[in-house]
């Protein structure tokens, strides 16, 4: 199996499952954790991620379809989206395309937040573009929450990601445009983003 990505917590493999091309996300063992705790943590995280993905799908957000959940192996077998990482292509596109995509992202985030889902790591690295559609991936840091703070942190990270990695300064405002249109509590969340930004502590290098 080919490794697509190696993260701090999990490895993503490219594989075949019943004739389909799939991505397998496997949470890896941590030697520093005692066995009981390691098993429990990896199992709970795997389960939680799968549940969040399914909830996101139900909320109308495009995600890879889950084919199999292997809790003993701490693996999620999911559809392989054969597209482009948004991070790699967005800068080359024209403004019209960028606006359309950002509007789509805003609506998607509104749908997540409306349904009590926090993605936890919304960056352009965690969005795949294929045939005009944006797929959200990696719900590994996600959680269920309806707190304004959590929603604010979620959006703030995207703002930082745009700032750090992309040239067009309007991208985030296009996301906010449709986020507002599609979510009644948007105003409160947007206010919160400023507050979070002022704290200046969620800054990180976006890869």
């Amino acid at each position: 199996m080919e490794i697509i990505k190696r993260g701090a917590e999990a490895i993503i493999y490219l594989a075949t499952w019943k004739g389909r091309k799939v991505a397998i996300k496997k949470r890896i063992k941590k030697g520093y954790r005692i066995k009981e705790l390691d098993e429990k943590t990896r199992e709970q995280r795997t389960k939680r991620e799968a549940l969040l993905m399914m909830a996101a799908r139900k909320a109308g957000v495009s995600i890879p379809i889950i084919y199999d959940l292997r809790l003993n192996e701490k693996e999620i077998v999911m559809q392989y989206i054969d597209g482009y990482r948004l991070k790699d292509i967005i800068d080359e596109k024209n403004e019209e395309w960028q606006k359309k995509i950002c509007n789509q992202i805003g609506k998607n985030i509104a749908n997540l937040h409306k349904n009590g889902i926090i993605h936890g790591d919304i960056t352009t690295s965690n969005m795949i573009y294929k045939n005009g559609r944006i797929y959200f991936i990696d719900f590994g840091l996600g959680m269920k929450s309806e707190e304004i703070e959590d929603r604010g942190v979620d959006l703030h990270l995207l703002m930082e990601a745009f700032k750090a990695a992309h040239r067009n300064k309007n991208l985030f405002s296009w996301v906010i445009e449709t986020y507002e249109e599609n979510f009644e509590e948007a105003e409160e969340v947007i206010k919160k983003i400023d507050e979070i930004a002022r704290r200046g502590r969620y800054m990180r290098r976006i890869s």
């Binding site: 701090a8 917590e9 941590k30 520093y32 954790r33 005692i34 705790l37 290098r205 890869s207």
Partner: peptide
């Protein structure tokens, strides 16, 4: 101890990955 310290190891590791 095991629970708290492993939580600390995890966030420290995540910060290391993020900041490279």
């Amino acid at each position: 101890q095991e629970t708290c310290f492993c939580m600390l190891a995890e966030v420290a590791e995540r910060a290391m990955a993020h900041t490279e």
